[in-house]
């Protein structure tokens, strides 16, 4: 792919994202599609998010308490686990799982519709495919990813609790008091803002890849892979940028 193609694709992606966002406030609105997508993204991802988060919390707690016990500070496991889960690992890990499951699903579904001429049929009958297909997915993703992140964070902290209490033999009450200490506006705001942005990026990237599908099964495979790869890259990059911005906003020094 040459530079001209890359710029052209970036421009198309930007236009699609703007149109999808404007679709939120313009008629017609597709409430049924939004509910269907929320069910697919939310309920469909609940188990995988719960499982991934639980084990991340357990592994993190295990690792941190092992390190802290050498310094005689393992009672602070809860604080470090909670902080890293809420601010960083939770939003990123859940967004990556979400991109793998939902992003690939969006790209392959829309890609199949492109190859099966279903999107052409919509256009012929005057239905705007961006409003019908992309906007409901963007709305659903920006609602469901933060919700899943909150659930996943809770699961991680329970995983951390289990390890702290039953493996590392710490006080459960102290663990929860540490968690309670870090539940301030600054941390919660950072933890909820990130999945909101990640959800938007995953939905826009995946829908764009789906709508750009060309060339049969091979093209569909490429679109699906690209959706996950680009979503993953954008999650990591935007996480860094958001962290930097939030630290500046709260006046924290590094």
């Amino acid at each position: 792919m040459n530079v001209r193609d890359t710029i052209s694709r970036l421009q198309d992606f930007y236009i699609l994202s703007v149109k999808a966002t404007l679709g939120i406030v313009r008629r017609p609105r597709y409430f049924r599609e939004i509910i269907e997508q929320m069910d697919y993204m939310g309920m469909g991802s609940l188990f995988i998010v719960f499982l991934v988060s639980l084990f991340i919390g357990m592994a993190l707690s295990l690792q941190i308490s092992a390190e802290l016990s050498e310094m005689g500070l393992k009672m602070y496991t809860g604080k470090i686990v909670g902080l890293s889960i809420i601010r960083e690992i939770g939003p990123v890990a859940i967004a990556l799982s979400f991109a793998g499951r939902v992003g690939s699903g969006m790209a392959s579904e829309i890609g199949s519709m492109i190859l099966g001429h279903q999107v052409d049929i919509m256009r012929v009958h005057g239905v705007n495919p961006v409003k019908k297909l992309v906007t409901p997915r963007v709305i659903s993703a920006v609602i469901m990813l933060p919700a899943l992140t909150i659930i996943g964070d809770a699961a991680s902290m329970f995983g951390g609790y289990y390890i702290s209490v039953f493996v590392s033999h710490q006080s459960g009450a102290f663990y929860w008091s540490q968690i309670k200490d870090i539940m301030d506006f600054e941390n919660i705001f950072a933890g909820v803002t990130k999945p909101f942005i990640f959800g938007y990026l995953i939905a826009c990237i995946s829908c764009y890849m789906g709508l750009s599908t060309r060339g049969g099964a091979r093209g569909l495979r490429q679109a699906t892979t690209s959706a996950v790869v680009y979503s993953t890259i954008m999650i990591i990059v935007s996480d860094f940028l958001l962290t930097r911005v939030l630290l500046i906003v709260w006046g924290s020094t590094v």
Partner: peptide, 12 residues
């Protein structure tokens, strides 16, 4: 487009 109606291969 309203002047036409199309039936795609395999129905779409």
């Amino acid at each position: 487009r309203m002047k036409f109606s199309i039936v795609f291969q395999e129905g779409a």
